[in-house]
Amino acid sequence: MSSSDTPSEKPGQQNPEAEAEVTRRDFLNEIAAAALGVAGLGATVVTIKYLSPNVLFEPPTQFRAGSPDDFPVNSVTFIRDQEVYVVRTLAGFYAVSAVCTHLGCITQWKPEDDQIECPCHGSKFTREGTKIAGPAPRPLPHFALRLTADGQLLVDKLETVKETQVLKV
């Protein structure tokens, strides 16, 4: 606190701004400003924390799609409640997201055109989820597909897998 008592002027400097010593008032002002800054930052962080919910009541991300025999070969089945297509080819099963990668609209499977179409901005995908046309930036992701112990298909929407991966039953 002795900065005002020990002047540290450098001789030869002309600019009065530069050679001005830090007075007690300046020092206290700086401290007060810093304290306000820290308090403001802290309040912001705490508020953002408060506004981010820790527990969410959202639908589960894992679900049973049913028995493999329910899906005929070479078919695309839309599971409406879960926004997922379960596709069965000759090679096996895979699950494709029905949520358009563009802006989150729910796509529709059009069997007559053999493609998946988004109603919002006109994106079109193949049954593998590859984009054919439209503004979607990415293909539709594939979700992990497993068989439960009692022989049911289990889709995990938190886990995306490669497009080449199919479940053989």
């Binding site: 609209c105 529709q108 109603p119 919002c120």
Partner: peptide, 9 residues
């Protein structure tokens, strides 16, 4: 209805 996108939205 979160499961049904109107066409066009």
């Amino acid at each position: 209805n979160p499961l049904l996108t109107p066409n066009p939205a």
